[in-house]
């Protein structure tokens, strides 16, 4: 039986990462994910948007972000659902799909200790959403609390594009 257990665990180990790589799958945002995310996008202008399925202002802003992503292919768009609910993945995916964000890099808080996840991102953040963090090529982060003005995002994106010319 011991051998079976080992085999099962090895199999499990090889299978576990697969679902996250599927198209449209949500990545689990856990301890260390924030630094991992920043490293992965290093040198690229990146828009990180925090939102949640029950947040009214988020519902209005999400489709605008979908349009922004379409209009600004030079910006890496990342969304992170910062709420928790037992049946959240389906609702999250369906809202992202409808907002035109299915092809963005989409994460979902995967640790019930949300305080700790938020602390890794910004110790002063108490969980208000929506929230957008603009990570410039040089790593400079600009945080927009609440709904972002798309015009401001475009201006930032243009400045990022200009920086490499």
């Amino acid at each position: 039986m011991k051998r079976h257990l080992l085999a099962a665990l090895i199999l499990l180990g090889t299978l576990a990462p697969a679902p996250a790589a599927e198209q449209g799958a949500l990545k689990q945002f856990e301890r260390g994910s924030w630094q991992q995310l920043l490293r992965a996008h290093k040198g690229h202008p990146t828009l990180v948007h925090f939102w949640g399925v029950t947040c009214g202002p988020c519902k209005v802003e999400l489709p605008e972000l979908g349009q922004f992503m379409k209009d600004h292919p030079g910006v890496d768009v990342v969304t992170i659902s910062a709420d928790l609910v037992p049946n959240l993945p389906d609702a999250t995916r369906s809202m992202l799909d409808r907002a035109g964000l299915a092809s963005a890099e989409n994460w979902i808080f995967g640790d019930g200790f949300a305080e700790r996840l938020r602390y890794e991102i910004d110790p002063a953040w108490q969980g208000d959403i929506p929230r957008t963090m603009l990570v410039a090529r040089d790593g400079t982060i600009t945080t927009i609390e609440g709904s972002a003005e798309i015009a401001d995002l475009s201006k930032w994106s243009d400045a990022q594009a200009a920086a490499i010319r």
Binding site: C55, P57, G127, D128, I129, E145, G146
Partner: peptide
């Protein structure tokens, strides 16, 4: 605190 967001607080 001017914010178009849910403070949840």
């Amino acid at each position: 605190w001017q914010i178009a967001a849910c403070p949840h607080h």
